[in-house]
Design a protein around this nucleic acid. Structure first.
Lengths: 153, 153
DNA sequence: TATTGTTATACTCTATAACTATA
DNA sequence: TATAGTTATAGAGTATAACAATA
């Protein structure tokens, strides 16, 4: 493959980029599978949690916006939202201006449950982070921002 | 919630650990979903790719070992392996010593396809990485190592 | 009797296609 | 005619329970 050190040449694509991508992909996929395995303590799916978390931080959105945000189809997001509505965690309100649209917002119960659920799902991760040095945790925090940026390309 | 700056106190659990865990979890899950969405160019699932990749790097393993490694049930792994066998990507060989066990190994076709598949799946990620600065890529490489360490706890 | 692998069955999440209503 | 949301249906992937073969 390619060399790994003394990469002062930044003209073209730097050497080792294929291996960087591969190791990052493997690490993230392994980590996400591990994280998913820890979720057994609650009954909500990743997609449901992602939606509630997004609504909590960014306010009401339409179904199409949520589907695009989570990169799933509209019917798939609709099913997720149906569950959340049935459980009383979100509300649907037809848009005043464009009556085709439906505004989806977090309910009080939803706000409670996303906070508590996130806490439960983070327990394992927090325990792991607490064993890292401050410097390592800074790296992970910076990486989180970079990963988010990549995901939103 | 907790404050965000001037965290010079490292005596106990540092402040903001819950938020660090949460943002890292959200970023990784979002990133992994995005990465999964890019896989449409081929027809193999994450689980299948993970098995072939593991066999390539670590040699033949039994069904139970693969199931434990990927943290899925034995029937689920059996189904994955059935597909891979049907496609000619792995071989099953009864163990000589313990006849209950079956050794699962990569075939030549499997070795080819895992190399090519990984290349395809990395294409999008490589394109993303190439737009980052060297410093940012260093952070991601370090984070990959840390995430792997967490995942294997 | 315990363990390894397998089969039977059901549930969840996902997608595409078709339908309704609004613009 | 185009768009936002929804419903119908089917395809993967996962799990638990039950079974067969071997130790």
């Amino acid at each position: 493959m390619s060399s790994s050190l003394a990469a002062t040449d930044t003209t073209g694509v730097p050497p080792g980029l294929d291996e960087e991508a591969s190791s990052l992909r493997l690490a993230v996929m392994r980590f996400s599978r591990r994280l998913r395995a820890e979720r057994a303590v609650d009954t909500m799916s990743d997609g449901q949690i992602a939606v509630l978390g997004w609504l909590r931080l960014n306010g009401p959105h339409t179904l199409g916006e949520l589907a695009e945000r989570e990169r799933v189809s509209a019917p798939s997001m609709n099913r997720t939202v149906n569950c959340l509505e049935e459980w009383g965690y979100i509300t649907r309100t037809p848009d005043d201006i464009d009556r085709r649209k439906v505004n989806i917002a977090l309910s009080d119960a939803g706000r409670e449950v996303i906070t508590e659920t996130a806490r439960l799902r983070d327990a394992w991760l927090e325990a792991s982070l607490s064993e890292f040095t401050p410097a390592e945790r800074v790296i992970l925090a910076q990486a989180a921002a970079l990963l988010s940026r990549i995901a939103e390309r």
